[in-house]
Design a binder for these strands. Sequence first.
DNA 1: CCGGATCCTCGGTGATACTG
DNA 2: CAGTATCACCGAGGATCCGG
Lengths: 229, 229
Amino acid sequence: MTTTRTYGQFCGLARALEIVGERWSMLVIRDLMLGPKRYTDLQLGLPRIPASILSSRLNELEQAGVVRRRVLPQLDAGLVYELTEYGSELDHIMLDLGLWGARSLGYPKDGDVFTNDAAILALYATFQEEAARGVHVTYVLRHSDSLIIHAMIDDGTLKVSGGDHPAADLVIEPQGPELIDLTTGNLTAAEAMATGRVRIEGPFEHLELFTKLFHIPPKPEIEDGLALH
Amino acid sequence: MTTTRTYGQFCGLARALEIVGERWSMLVIRDLMLGPKRYTDLQLGLPRIPASILSSRLNELEQAGVVRRRVLPQLDAGLVYELTEYGSELDHIMLDLGLWGARSLGYPKDGDVFTNDAAILALYATFQEEAARGVHVTYVLRHSDSLIIHAMIDDGTLKVSGGDHPAADLVIEPQGPELIDLTTGNLTAAEAMATGRVRIEGPFEHLELFTKLFHIPPKPEIEDGLALH
DNA sequence: CCGGATCCTCGGTGATACTG
DNA sequence: CAGTATCACCGAGGATCCGG
């Protein structure tokens, strides 16, 4: 069943990869980082994962002590999967790895899914704690009718959740993937407004603040491999 | 050739996994973290990787801007692979992931390889910077005749290299995998000495210091999944 | 409807051998 | 030394079916 292919190395990284390095495993963990989910919710967030693979991964992760299945107390509420404490300690690693990968992300390809959870985690990963000291502001990001999240910044801390927020200081409605350009610095807040690529409800200064609070560092250019210095 | 299987998600983590998430990729990166290596050196550190896979992975990683191939200036010195700046920015993530996995590592299985590089990275990953403030000490770890490394601690900074060090303050010769137990706290320095499981040359206090400088936190116990609190 | 198990196909993996 | 060629096999991926 779970043959648990090994690397044959006495090495922490090799062990980690044996546990969470299988295809889809880390994306399952990503989806569980924001809270317990049931099997079908996981399938919604990972549309391309075959049911049999999801089942295998959940079993392997449970075996390794990363994920736990829990029967909900409410009657007929079914089963949820959640991270154990050990699994939760992957959180900052996943955020860092996600931020590293975001620098090679580019624009969404046709057919790419963009989930609520991915948007929420993107904000956590790109959050600049230092820039948020003393700041109190609430944003609502409306990518589409079905993809709405809000972020509350409260003196260096960040809390992001799905859904709307009635008392947001600024509502941001990107017309496409311009938030990427805003957070990388490829697009300034003023340009985004001038070209109509981002619509806002609220004071403009809060949009400028947003670009300071959430930032993706640029990917280094490819250096010349033949430099002899 | 490199079909570059995708996840179909607009997500930094998914992108990162498309780049470095294939089987063996991260272990190749691990071996390049300590400096440029040639193809055959990579094979030595990864004995179970098929040559064709190593070749594919190196090409994929080069394509993604993580690895660069460089022709050595010296005549006939051949070709080396090294991390680009972008690839080097995975360093802390690999160390963190390796430390996470080390907590599930246990003892080496029969046939496991334990390379110089893995030993060096283990020290970096487990290093307690705070405990090393004001400390100046040099260790030599002799696991076997062919696996010798030395670690130099210099006021909060650590430098580990392969090979011996003539002026070490303490030489540690574990008789087996007891260094794991020492760094997890399962075995105290005094017990290790009393039971003869570790031989040292130098003052005993430096062994106690060692257990403070390098530490693997315990893996949390599996909680009861049915707790209703 | 939830939570899978089962069957089938295809391509990546892994072992061995061989070449510039 | 640095790979490519060939091939068996098994895990991924897709669809369908099954028990509660």
